[in-house]
Design a protein around this nucleic acid. Structure first.
Length: 478
RNA sequence: GGGGUAGUAGGGUAGCCUGGUCCAUCCUAGAGCGUUUGGGACGCUUUGACGGCGGUUCGAAUCCGCCCUACCCCA
């Protein structure tokens, strides 16, 4: 197996910690010989499976899953001017079939608006067809020129959930944006990931959108990570792709649209927010193995202990938990380190002493140790899994709160950013003031109209001009 | 976008400056055998590498060029 002995780099050295953990906890192998492309290990892919299954379950309340082609013909891709401008430097092109040059170049989707909307033009005929709410989970390709990072900045995004909805009116599309933001909040809450929702400044919105609402998380080093976006597209694309419907009066109307995306950055946030110096810490909802049973078999009691451990595994599995009995020929201590590195929430130690006492020693990945009754193990495990979920959530919320800094002056802004914080300022939303803030800080205005339970001071005077302004997030972003 | 640093068994390193005693060293991992097992066991045996292409040279891990890949710093 891989070398997992010895210590990880400290989490305070976030970049080194992240890279080493991905490899040693068997999440991603970064050695694939193409820049920006990485390989999921089975364990990492299992985490992905649980995270994305939850996302599907939430979406399926309101959307339907579909699948569009990877390749987009050049003429479709080039239809929407603003959209092209936003992506043209990042598109991979397929130019040959075998050795024959193609008459029509094919783009590898960097996102699928231009693949999906020509079909929507065919599918949407009447107001009765609306709303139309479809999503797909696919890989997309972007020729990133900045430094690539596994799970964070990729040339192949392997796990892009993109939702595309069509509505009769602008207001209905806006309501859909809000619905999807609420869905995103519920999704991340299930994995104990605190988020901050804000409206991206106009110059940073999705190319071709009326506006963009972003979802950010604060990483351990104080940088922000965009882990979701919801765009109100208005009628930009419906004009271009002729997505019209016949209203009740028999008139043709342009449809209003939204699109919405979440990628494997969600998993980057999951890993980064919860992990510690020992390795991963997975909230039970994301853990491929929620509890690992470590039998302590000494001398003559081997058979007794193994029989009890197997029964425990069976009982817990029957109760719906994801459990593994670790029967490998390793010393118990080595197994403890092994599973701690991989973030398994609970370790159940079962040895002769425990057997005699009719109990199991439960050790949580966050360091709590307590015995539970062997006879009622499923109930005990359920309780402790609930406890650890809350413990993980509290840790992440404390981290997020402590990395936000309310700032009222330009000098204070630089000090806060240099201290590794994300600043909350008030800004009048004027472009000039925005430029002033960004120039003085070497940071970005992430978003305004901030919505977060961590930020209550939503209005105040603009940090640049003193006029009325709204709460605005300023930080260094991935 | 600009500037660095690096690439040697599955992982981590030494060797490079000063080309040859280097069929390359150590730790770790893998395979095998034995003894162990309540926080990373030990002994013995064994497998396994100089990023790619080209150049210089009698001879290249080492020098030169290009490429690929990775990481760090600045914008």
């Amino acid at each position: 197996m891989d070398d997992d002995t010895g210590a990880l780099p400290a989490k305070s050295d976030f970049s080194a910690w992240f890279n080493d953990l991905l490899w040693r906890a068997e999440i991603m192998d970064v050695r694939y010989p193409v820049k920006g492309l990485y390989v999921w290990y089975p364990y990492g892919f299992a985490i992905r499976k649980f995270v994305y299954q939850r996302l599907r379950d939430l979406l399926d309340r309101d959307h339907q899953e579909t699948l569009f082609p990877l390749l987009i013909p050049e003429q479709e891709f080039m239809k929407e001017a603003e959209h092209i401008k936003g992506f043209e430097d990042e598109v991979y092109w397929v130019t040959h079939g075998g050795t024959t040059p193609l008459d029509v170049k094919l783009a590898l989707r960097p996102t699928s608006e231009t693949a999906i909307y020509p079909m929507y033009a065919l599918w949407v005929r009447s107001h009765a067809d609306l709303p139309m709410k479809y999503y797909q989970i696919v890989n997309t390709f972007r020729y990133e020129t900045k430094q690539t990072r596994p799970l964070i900045r990729l040339r192949e995004i392997t796990s892009f959930m993109e939702s595309h909805t069509v509505h009769a009116t602008w207001d209905e599309a806006e309501a859909q944006v809000e619905y999807e933001l609420a869905l995103t909040r519920e999704f991340y809450d299930g994995f104990c990931i605190p988020i901050i929702i804000s409206k991206r400044p106009d110059w940073d919105k999705f190319p071709g959108a009326d506006y963009t609402i972003a979802v950010d998380a604060i990483m351990p080093n104080g940088k922000t990570l965009q882990i979701g976006t919801v765009h109100h597209l208005g009628t930009h694309f419906s004009k271009t792709f002729s997505i019209t419907y016949e209203d009740k009066n028999g008139e043709q109307q342009l449809a209003n649209q939204t699109c919405y995306g979440i990628s494997e950055r969600s998993i980057a946030a999951l890993i980064s927010l919860h992990g510690d110096d020992k390795g991963l810490i997975l909230p039970p909802a994301a853990a491929p193995i929620q509890a690992v049973i470590i039998p302590i078999t000494i001398g003559k009691r081997h058979e007794d202990v193994m029989a009890a451990a197997q029964k425990l595994e069976k009982d817990l599995t029957a109760a719906g938990f994801r459990v593994k009995l670790d029967t490998r020929e390793m010393r118990p201590g080595a197994k403890y380190y092994w599973w701690e590195l991989r973030g398994v929430p609970l370790r159940l130690e079962l040895g002769p002493r425990d057997l005699d006492a009719g109990q199991i020693m439960v050790v949580t990945r966050t360091g709590e140790k307590s015995p539970i009754e062997l006879a009622t193990a499923p109930d005990g495990v359920k309780t402790v899994l609930g406890d650890i979920t809350e413990a993980i959530r509290t840790r992440a919320e404390d981290h997020t709160r402590s990395h936000l800094s309310y700032v009222a002056t330009m000098d204070g802004l630089n000090a806060a950013l240099d201290a590794g914080k994300v600043a909350v300022v008030h800004w009048c939303q004027d472009r000039g003031c925005g430029d002033a803030i960004e120039e003085k800080t070497n940071a970005s205005i992430l978003g305004t109209d901030v919505r977060s339970e961590y930020i209550t001071d939503t209005e105040g005077t603009c940090i640049a001009c003193g006029k009325r302004g709204k709460a605005t997030l300023v930080g260094r972003a991935y």
